[in-house]
Design a protein around this nucleic acid. Sequence first.
DNA 1: GTTAGCATGTAAGGAGTTACATGATTTT
DNA 2: AAAATCATGTAACTCCTTACATGCTAAC
Lengths: 213, 213
Amino acid sequence: MAKRSDVLQFAVLGLLHETPLHGYELRKRLNATLGAFRAFSYGSLYPCLKELLAGGFISEQAELPVPTGKRSRIVYQLTAEGKEHFATLLDESGPSAWDDEGFGVHFAFFGRTDAQTRLRILEGRRSRLEERVDGFRAALTRSRERVDSYTLALHQHGLESVEREVRWLSELIDDERRLRESTDDPGNVPGPRTVPGQTSHTGTTQNTEKEHP
Amino acid sequence: MAKRSDVLQFAVLGLLHETPLHGYELRKRLNATLGAFRAFSYGSLYPCLKELLAGGFISEQAELPVPTGKRSRIVYQLTAEGKEHFATLLDESGPSAWDDEGFGVHFAFFGRTDAQTRLRILEGRRSRLEERVDGFRAALTRSRERVDSYTLALHQHGLESVEREVRWLSELIDDERRLRESTDDPGNVPGPRTVPGQTSHTGTTQNTEKEHP
DNA sequence: GTTAGCATGTAAGGAGTTACATGATTTT
DNA sequence: AAAATCATGTAACTCCTTACATGCTAAC
C-alpha cells in the first residue's frame, strides 16, 4: 500500500518484465529508457525495490556465480502478482496516463500495451495538451503589449512547443487508426514497423550524467 | 541565509521590481509570467515572502484604503537591498542560469538584464543543450534495433525537441550579436522591438488551473 | 443560497536528491 | 597510484503540494 511514485514503480516493473536485473543495471536502463523526461537516483530506486519486494511484486535472488570477483549482486525478477499488476497498470488509460510524467512511462511501454488503450491514452493526452494550448493563447492575447518582447518570445515559444506536440500526437493517432482498420483481429500488441510521427516533445530533464561527478 | 528555491525568490523579486504587490496577485502574475515552465502554490509563496522579509529584501505594508470591503491586503515592495540583490542575481550567468528552471526565470527577466549577460546565458544554455543532443544521439545509435519502435519514436521525438530548442537559441544569439554590433554603447537593456526566434521550448508544466478546484 | 473568486496563512506529508559509507575491480 | 565504474545501501534534507482553517464579497 506504499505510495512511492507510481512512475518509478511502473517503470521498474516494465523493465523487469523484459529480463531480471540487479539494481545498478536497472537504474541505467531506467535512465536510458525514460531518460528523455525523467531521471532517478539510487536514493529512490533501492527503497522502491524494497517496497515492490514487500508488496510481493518482485523477488530477489543473490547471483551465485559471481561474474569475476566484484560485489555479489542482487537480481530482481517479477513474480506472478508482479506480472498481473503490471498488466493492470498497462491498461490504465485515465488521467494519470495523460499528464507529463504518466504519459511518458505509458508511452515507453506501448509495445506491450493493448491497441485500444494506446488510442485512448494518445487521445487523452492530446486533449489535455489542447487545453494547455487554449490557456497559452488566452494568456498571450491578454498580455499583448503589456509584457516586454522577451517574455513574449518565451510565451510564444512555449505555445508553439505544445502545438507541435499536439501535431505529433495527431500523427500517432492517425497511425493507430490506420493500423486498426487494416488489422482483422481487434488488436493486441501488433508491434508496428514504423511509427512515422516525428516532431517536438517536452524533454525537460537534466541528463548527460556521469556516475559520480 | 535561508535557501528556499532561488527560482521562486528570484521571480518574486523580479515581479516586485516592477510594482508593489500583495501575495494573491503576486501568485497570479508568477504563474502567468513563468507559467510555461513552473507553477507555485500559496504553500510555497507565503513562506518565501516571509523569508525575503526576514532577509530585509522586501518590506510589507498593510493596504490602508481597503478597496471595497474585502480582507485587508498586505502589499510587499522591494527595499534598497532587495533591488541590489536582484541586480546581483540578474548578473549571474553561471551554470545556475543554464539549467531548465534557472534559464526560464533568467530569460523572463531578460528585459532588465545586461546585454553581455544575456549573451553569456544564451550561449551557456545552448552548449548545455548541445551536450544533451549528443547524449541523445549516442543513446539512439547505441540502442538501434534493440528497442521497439515506440521507444525509438519517443527518443527521436525527444532528440528533435532539444535540437529545435538549440536552433531557437541560435537565432536569439544571432539577434543579440546583431544588436550589439548596431549599438554604440556597450549595452545596458536596449529593449529590442522584436525577438524573431520562434521555435520549440521545454514547456513541462501543469497549467490551466482553477483557483480552488 | 451556493458556487466562484478574493485573501492570508499553516501543518503534514509526498517525492525525490545529495552526500555519505563501503569496498572491489578495471582502466588510465 | 589515481580515477572511473561497479555495486548496494541509508539518513538527512530540500522543495513543493495538498488539504485545512478562516472569512468576506460578487455573481449566478
